[in-house]
Each structure stands twice: as structure tokens, then as C-alpha cells.
Amino acid sequence: MNNITAPHIRTEAASRHLTRDVLLTTLPLCIFSAVTYGVRPVLIVLFSILSAIVSECVCCLFRRQSMQVIRDGSAAVTGALIGLVMSPMVDYWVPMLGAAFAIIVVKAPFGGYGRNVFNPAAAGIAVLSYCFPQRMFTYPIASSMNPLPTGMSVGDEVVTSLSLAAQLRADATPSITRMQLILGDFAGPIGATATLLLVACAVYLICRGTISCWTVVPYFATCALVAWLFPAAGVSRMYGVLAQVCAGYVLFTGVFLINDTVTTPRFWFARLLYGVSAGVLVMLLQRIGRVECGCCFAILLLNSIAPIMDRWSWYVWRYVTRFLRIRQEVKAHE
């Protein structure tokens, strides 16, 4: 009894509830993809999750830790996020490899959930995009009439197309209408094309308190501003903004990758700075990067400075408020 410390009552919220919320939001994205492409995308996500969980178990064995750790759901979230940015026609082993890399190389050596410096999912995606760009960035044309085969590899019979992001990078004029953009009826990664669903996921997660609007809103505002200031060639300015923000990875990054609680700043002002800098960097790397998922590299880069950003923004904010308070008191006494 002596070790009981105040407060004697705690909130019901637990770490696993946060990851559960994120996993829950990936469900509608999978369903959307299943409706468009058949069962294959769902299997890709499931295999990815499985690989992440098995990798976590292996790491637990090596660290002589209890297997109970996987109950926090963080490995499943990493696996799900890697699965969701794959092309629907990717081979199953690709996301599995990415998820295993994320857990074994990026997360476990630092001490597991809560101690990792870099976002494991972003690192997994970044490695895959550099190792297998051909497999990752070849997308089938969205059609609910012809579901993809569920075999290990998809043959040449599937009609493929460049993604919207690749078209914009190549200064081509996309043939996708605005309505198609909003409804997600275009070629792209499994869970990153359903624009409306992703926005709904973001709203749900903000309402649940799982992610912070201090990051999400500045991120999207900055992305839209950059897209408006530097429009893509061959399209109107407004269409360019919509297309660049909705083009696959930018929206997905804004909802999931920049909101990984472990690797982002915690203080609200630092979160705001993080969102703005992520927006600028993501748009920059999307435009000039070698691969079309430049956002993962932007996130990894920002992860490395997030703790410093967190502390220094707090120092600045503390001194500014103190200065303002002193000035106010001096005024009151005059």
C-alpha cells in the first residue's frame, strides 16, 4: 500500500487504445480497396501485419522480453501502414520484407515501442521504395469489374498506369477529374487514394484525441500553400492544389505518418512547427526527390530533429510568455 501514489484514480485510456484507434481507421481503407481491386490488397495488408508481429516476437525472444509486448498493437500498426502504401499488385513478400525491416532494424534496437527515434513505418517504406521502385510504383488501373488475382505475383495481363503523383512529377496533364480525385477513383497505393475516407479518418482520430490538430492542420495548410504558390505545369492552379495534396502519399502522410506519437514533438508549438516544416519538406521531396514517396524521407529527416524542436520551441515560448507577463505587470503598476 505504501507504494500507492497520487492520483488514486486514472483515466481509462491506455497506450493500446491509441494504436487500436489507428488500426480501426485502416479498416475502411482496406474495405475500399477490396471493393476496387478484390481481395488481394487486403491480403497484402494482412501479410504485412503478420510479418511485423512475427518480427516483434523474434525481437522479444532476443531481448528476453515477454511476448505480451505485442498486445500494445504498435507492431500491427507499423505493418498495416506499410501494407497500405503498397501497390495493389505488389508481390506479398515486398511489404513483409519492409515490415520486418521496420521492426527489426528501426524499432527493436532502440528498445521497442516508445523508445524508437525514427518512425518504423516511414523507414520501412523508404527502404522498399529505394530497393524495389519498379514493384512499388506500378499501379493497376482501378476497376471493380476485374479483381486482381490472389496468386503470389500478378502477371502482365493487368493494365497498369502511372500514379497521379508520377504524372504530376513528369509535368504531364492528368486525365482525372476533380470528382474522381475526391472519390478516390484513380490508380494509386492501396490505402492512399480514398481521399474522403482519409479525411474522415483524420477527423475521427482528432476527435478521439489520438492525433493532434496542431500537426495535421498546419501540415495540410502548408502543403496546399506550397502547391498553390508553385503550381504543376499543364494544370490549373486550383486543380494542381487538389491533385498534389490528394496524390497518394501526401494525404496519407498527413493522416498517419506524421502523427506517430513516439517520433513527433509533444509540445503544441513544436507540433505546429513540425507540421509546417513537414509540409514544406514533403512538397519539396515530392517534386524533386528520386522516388515518388519522398514524404517518407521528409518524415525521417524531421524525426531526427523532433526532440530538439520540441525543447527549443518550449524554451522560446516560455520566455516569450514570461516577457509578456512581466510587461503586463509593469503596465498594471504604472
Binding site: 491509441l18 528498445g111 516508445g114 506519437t261 517520433t263 509533444r266 507540433r271
Partner: peptide
Amino acid sequence: QPCIGCGRCA
């Protein structure tokens, strides 16, 4: 459990 960095305490 380890801090997951949700920032709610701040």
C-alpha cells in the same frame, strides 16, 4: 509502460 510521447501531460 514506456512513454509513447502522446504529449497529453504537457
